[in-house]
Every structure is written in C-alpha cells, then in structure tokens.
C-alpha cells in the first residue's frame, strides 16, 4: 500500500492536533512532601496522563492500522519515555524545575525526600537543558514523541507470522513519515543543509538519553511499589508490570 498520503506538513498538523490537553494534579499538596506523599502525587498524575497518552496514540496517523498486538507492545514499551518527554517539554523554560503539571511543580532539591529519585531528576533536568540549548520547536517535539512511540518496539522482537511481518512493514513506513516530518520541521528553521543534518542527529541522539532515564525511572517505580512506599493500581500498574515482567 502506498505510504501515507499525507505530506510532511499535513502529518505534522495531524500530530499537533493529537496533542493531549494540559492536565492538572487537582490535589491539595501537603508540604513539606514525604516520600509517600510525593510518590502518591507522581503516580496519580502518571495514571491520568496514561489515559490521555493512549487517546493521543490513536490519533497518530496510521497507528490504528497497525495490528492490535503491535499497538499494545509499542505503548507498553515506551509509555514512561512519552511521559518524560512531555515533562521535559513543559519544563523547558523553567531551568532547575520539573513542571509535572501547572499545579505540581518541583524544584530539584524537593526530590531529596524520595530515596533514589534525585539521580532521575538530575537526568531529566540535564536532558531538559539540552532541549533548551537546542531551542527545541513544538513541531520537532511532537515528531520526536511520535518517533519514540513508533520506534520503541522495533528491535525487541522479530516478526514471525505474516500479520506481524505486514504490521512491521506498515510501522516502518509510518516511521519514515515521521522522520520526513521532522526533517521538514527542521528545514523551516533557516539553517544550512549541513546544520539541518547535524540538528537531526542531535535531536535523535537525545532519544537514547530518554530511553535511559525511562529505564531508570521504571526500576525506581518498581522498587517504590515493591517496598510499598506507594500503592500502584489500575492502568499504571498494568503498564509497570508489563515492563517489569518482560524485563525480569
């Protein structure tokens, strides 16, 4: 089947429209935080964001044409990366702060109350300052997010059945469309072609840092759950278990 009939410009406007609405924690924050109160707020917000992330993914052109098992595997594999990239985007103009939501902003040092989270906060802040340095554009941000989703499970399994082979071919074509869209977004910045190529490289290299901090975050959340520091339930529990079961 021909590649998506969308031009890069049309593709970008479609994924810009797919952007989830800004959500709020909508909780009375009792400060100073305790380890469990901070983890409770972080997981409550994450659970709400996951619901919005799934409806976001369904609006990515071509995602619903993939096999249902591919859709599930992709989302299971990248959900924390997607949440973290959204956090970085919201925090990009607030050096030293993590804007989890407009009513839930944390300074780096507030993470001290949760064992093991400072290392993750520092990685998130470092990646965010890199995006600030690069002056990441919203069009580039939405392309990177779609790339994370579509790229997440590409190298975890080899397709066996004919359906899996067909779905993987669709996935690769979809990934081409997202890369074309990112290249198009970069071409609008008035850079030389060599600078455009370098920028594409720098942006995609950041994806490996996002995967790394997501893996650290997944381990940390599993530890917090195992130690009963926080009760993880519902969709967040499903997505966490999906990762811990596959990794263990």
């Amino acid at each position: 089947s021909p590649r998506l009939a969308l031009t890069p410009e049309q593709f970008i406007s479609r994924i810009m429209e797919a952007e989830p609405p800004q959500i709020y924690l909508m909780e009375e924050l009792k400060k100073p935080f305790t380890e469990s109160s901070m983890m409770m707020s972080l997981t409550n917000l994450a659970d709400k964001e996951l619901v919005l992330m799934i409806s976001w993914a369904k609006k990515i052109p071509g995602f619903m044409e993939l096999s249902l098992s591919d859709q599930i595997h992709l989302l299971k594999c990248c959900w924390l990366e997607i949440l973290m990239l959204g956090l970085m985007w919201r925090s990009v103009d607030h050096p030293g702060k993590l804007i989890f939501s407009p009513d839930f902003k944390l300074n780096r040092d507030e993470g001290q109350c949760v064992e093991g989270i400072m290392e993750i906060f520092d990685m998130l802040l470092a990646a965010t300052s890199r995006f600030r340095e690069l002056k990441l554009q919203r069009e580039e941000y939405v392309c990177l997010k779609a790339m994370i989703l579509l790229n997440s499970n590409l190298c975890n399994t080899t397709p066996q059945t004919a359906e899996e082979v067909e779905s993987r071919a669709k996935l690769l074509r979809l990934l081409d469309s997202v890369i074309d869209a990112l290249v198009w977004a970069i071409s609008k910045l008035g850079l030389s072609s060599q600078q455009q190529t370098l920028r594409l490289g720098h942006l995609t290299m950041l994806l490996s840092h996002i995967r790394h901090v997501s893996n650290k975050g997944m381990d940390h959340l599993s530890t917090m759950k195992r130690k009963n520091v926080v009760l993880v339930y519902d969709l967040l529990l499903e997505m966490l278990d999906a990762n811990t079961s596959s990794s263990s």
Partner: peptide, 13 residues
C-alpha cells in the same frame, strides 16, 4: 492488559 486493551479498542469520542 485489560485497561490498556479497553482504552485502545473503545471508539474515539
């Protein structure tokens, strides 16, 4: 993946 499956397969609003 009950909740994930349910959210994936519900028709968009």
């Amino acid at each position: 993946h009950t909740k994930l499956l349910q959210l994936l397969t519900t028709k968009p609003e």
